[in-house]
């Protein structure tokens, strides 16, 4: 979609941007990209819908296992990660604002902050949740090895927990890659007040990652 005209000019790249020829103007292209991406986001929500469905079904069928399972999680790490992701969402939104106002340096700072929060999220997840839990046998399905289970369906809880959080973590990683790309291109002045489609779209993706976590957090950590 982003075709750049080859003619050399002193203007920054974003100001030289021309929309693809099958669009009537840049605004229409921007609108189309956003609609397309929102549709993509619906598919992401429904992808997680499968996990939510498994959660919902098994939680209702085996409430004891779910109660025991959420008791084995520490809400403080979940809450901490929620705050981290909310902050990252905020910095992402601010970076879009900065691009819209052509404050390139501030935008880059905010993107770096977003990346930092994303990495922090993954670190907390891995170091304080996955590794300690996995090592004492709190694992999904066949790999389950935790000897003190009281409910017979506890392995299922861990299956849902790991599937949900791992697929979410994969999205965090993909989001970080997208943000890194945007950051790189920001340094080349690709984006500015009249052209920032990719920043906006990356932002939408990152907010979706946050959105999913907003639901995963209470479902996994708080509801008992």
């Amino acid at each position: 979609m982003s075709t750049l005209s080859t003619s050399s000019s002193s203007k920054p790249l974003w100001a030289r941007y021309k929309p693809a020829i099958h669009f009537r103007n840049a605004a229409e292209e921007f609108d189309a990209c956003k609609l397309g991406f929102w549709l993509f986001l619906t598919t992401e929500v429904l992808l997680f819908g499968g996990i939510f469905c498994a959660y919902f079904i098994f939680r209702t069928l085996y409430p004891d296992a779910w109660k025991e399972g959420s008791g084995l999680l520490d809400w403080r790490f979940g809450a901490g990660n929620t705050v981290v992701l909310l902050l990252s969402s905020y910095t992402m939104a601010v970076s879009i604002y900065c691009i819209q106002k052509d404050q390139q340096f501030r935008a880059q700072l905010n993107l770096i902050a977003t990346l930092f929060f994303g990495a922090l999220f993954l670190y907390i997840k891995l170091a304080y949740e996955y590794i300690p839990k996995w090592s004492v046998g709190k694992r999904p399905g066949s790999m389950f090895d935790y000897p003190f289970a009281e409910s017979a369906h506890l392995p299922l809880w861990w299956s849902v927990y790991y599937c949900g959080t791992a697929i979410h973590a994969a999205h965090v990683i993909i989001g970080m890659i997208l943000i890194a790309r945007v950051l790189w291109r920001t340094t080349k002045r690709h984006y500015g007040p009249t052209h920032y489609t990719m920043v906006e779209i990356t932002g939408l993706y990152w907010h979706l990652v946050d959105l999913i976590w907003i639901f995963l957090f209470p479902l996994l950590y708080l509801i008992h």
């Binding site: 929500v45 429904l46 992808l47 499968g50 079904i57 999904p140 399905g141 066949s142 392995p155 790991y162």
Partner: peptide, 28 residues
């Protein structure tokens, strides 16, 4: 997307034995 997650869970089922769909592991 729902078949996406279904098939992904099926792959996990086969490779890791997560058991969401396997009655031997408590699933359905």
């Amino acid at each position: 997307p729902v078949i996406g997650i279904t098939l992904l869970l099926l792959v996990f089922e086969r490779v890791l034995g997560i058991g969401i769909f396997d009655p031997a592991r408590g699933g359905d």
